[in-house]
Amino acid sequence: MTELSKEQHLLIAMRKTLTAIIKDVTPPPGMRHPFSEATIQQVRQCLGLIAAREQELALEQGRGGERPYYSDERPDVQLVAFDTIKRRPN
């Protein structure tokens, strides 16, 4: 596994800070958002740029294809031990 660079640590910190701000100021359904539409678009652009750069750096390090997942999400691949597979009678 490759050590993360200063740039990667910075991008992670910026992404986490922006998403925490969004969570903190998001109003309940039906209430008006405190940010203007222009500010919302700028935050989306920032998060998009951060994600794109993180992906570029991951690909440069050979870590491409990583995706976030939920802890209760079923994996696409299921490992099966060979000793649990039974042979069919001939």
Rank of each mutant, 00 (worst) to 15 (best):
M1H: 07
T2V: 14
E3R: 08
E3P: 01
E7I: 04
E7D: 08
Q8N: 03
Q8M: 15
H9D: 06
H9W: 08
L10E: 10
L10F: 07
L10S: 06
L11N: 02
L11M: 06
I12P: 00
I12W: 07
A13M: 08
M14L: 14
R15G: 02
R15L: 04
K16P: 00
K16F: 00
T17H: 14
T17Q: 14
T17W: 07
L18C: 03
L18V: 10
T19M: 11
T19K: 13
T19H: 01
T19N: 11
A20F: 01
A20N: 09
A20E: 13
A20D: 15
I21T: 08
I21W: 06
I22T: 14
K23W: 00
D24Q: 13
D24T: 05
V25P: 00
T26P: 03
T26I: 02
P27A: 11
P27H: 05
P27F: 05
P27E: 07
P28G: 08
P28V: 11
P29V: 03
G30F: 07
M31S: 09
R32Q: 15
H33G: 02
H33P: 01
F35D: 00
F35H: 00
F35E: 00
S36N: 03
S36V: 02
S36Y: 03
E37D: 15
A38G: 04
T39W: 05
T39M: 13
T39K: 15
Q41I: 02
Q42C: 03
R44L: 10
Q45A: 15
C46T: 03
G48W: 02
G48V: 02
L49T: 03
L49C: 04
I50D: 01
A51Y: 09
R53A: 03
E54N: 09
E54Y: 00
Q55C: 06
Q55T: 13
Q55K: 15
A58G: 01
L59A: 13
L59P: 00
L59W: 00
L59D: 14
Q61E: 13
R63D: 10
G64Q: 11
G64A: 15
G65F: 01
R67E: 14
P68F: 11
Y69E: 06
Y69Q: 10
S71L: 10
D72L: 07
D72C: 04
E73Q: 15
R74P: 05
R74A: 13
R74H: 09
P75R: 10
D76Q: 10
D76S: 12
D76K: 12
D76I: 04
V77P: 00
Q78A: 09
L79Q: 12
L79C: 04
V80G: 04
A81F: 07
A81R: 13
F82W: 01
F82V: 14
D83H: 09
D83Q: 05
T84V: 12
T84R: 13
I85N: 05
I85F: 09
K86T: 09
R87Y: 08
R88E: 11
R88V: 07
R88M: 09
